[in-house]
């Protein structure tokens, strides 16, 4: 008997969830159909001069009038999108290497050593997360572009991204290092291993999962970053993918929605897959501090 009422109740729940699913999926389908339409227009169908309800319905169904890959091939052959993707890859890759190195060494020190300034250092990292981007953006712009003349240069962006990702990564790695039993290190120390050897030979291999998550987090942060790249990279050839995608539809020139949609799919697909695989780790990283109290 209870089974029956449950099913009836579930029907309403399913209906509600279905509405939510449509709202969630619609923009994604929208990009897909603009991308595969082969044109640069926003509309899926040409409306007759005096459209009826059916014509209008056709115009909102996210299915293009023809399916073609041409936007995907054109965005690489006729637009410098390949170059932009390469820029993003270089910047995000170097940021990952740099960020993991900086965060793992600092995280290890905070986890294993008691030294004067430890608490202040960790709090400083935490507080720095509260600095609003624009407050440091103006000085950073002056330092990187005006003084160091690293505008439109990979190095400037890599330096910036590595340091912005550090605090989160340090806290996350410190938390993981804390869970590794200290006995392992003590026996190594007895055998005369130096701190550097212990870190390199024992801690790092044991922390592979955490390091991987940190690396992917750094990569995704750098890959998706928009404002700093917009500010620093002012030559078209040095755009990163986000700045380039906005260039297709944000400027005063003709808006190229087809290129934007195709490019977005290429740029977003890898990070979306990464995100869906990693979501549990990221969420636990975000809330770890809070749950501990």
């Amino acid at each position: 008997m209870s089974r029956r009422t449950d099913s009836v109740g579930h029907l309403w729940l399913h209906l509600f969830l279905l509405v939510m699913v449509v709202i969630t999926v619609y923009p994604i389908l929208w990009v897909l159909s603009v991308a595969f339409s082969g044109g640069q227009s926003l509309a899926f169908a040409d409306l007759p001069p005096d459209p009826g309800v059916l014509d209008r319905l056709r115009a909102i169904v996210p299915w293009p009038e023809q399916l073609t890959w041409s936007n995907f091939s054109d965005v690489f052959s006729q637009q410098p999108f390949g170059r932009w993707l390469l820029n993003s890859t270089i910047v995000a890759g170097a940021t990952t290497l740099c960020g993991v190195f900086l965060a793992s060494t600092a995280g290890y020190a905070f986890s294993r050593f008691k030294f004067p300034g430890r608490r202040a250092g960790m709090m400083g990292f935490l507080v720095s997360q509260m600095f609003p981007g624009t407050l440091t953006l103006v000085p950073l712009y002056i330092i990187i572009v005006v003084w160091l003349e690293l505008g439109s240069n990979f190095l400037g962006l890599i330096l910036l991204y590595s340091t912005t990702a550090i605090p989160f990564c340090v806290w996350m790695l410190k938390g993981y290092f804390d869970t590794i039993p200290i006995e392992l290190e003590e026996s190594a120390k007895m055998d005369g291993a130096s701190a550097l050897t212990i870190f390199y030979r024992i801690i790092l291999p044991l922390s592979k999962p955490a390091i991987a998550v940190t690396a992917l987090f750094s990569f995704m942060t750098a890959w998706n970053e928009f404002v700093l790249a917009l500010t620093i990279m002012d030559q078209e050839i040095m755009y990163t993918a986000p700045v380039g995608l906005r260039f297709f539809v944000g400027g005063y020139a003709e808006q190229q929605w087809g290129y934007f949609a195709a490019g977005s799919i290429v740029a977003a697909l890898p990070v979306m897959i990464l995100f869906l695989i990693l979501q549990r780790y990221l969420i636990s990283g975000l809330t770890a501090g809070a749950v501990k109290g």
């Binding site: 969630t24 994604i28 944000g250 977005s264 740029a267 977003a268």
Partner: peptide, 15 residues
Amino acid sequence: LILPWAVPNYITALI
């Protein structure tokens, strides 16, 4: 339902 979180937000905005 988790998909929107995975889409980079600058892309969401432009869409």
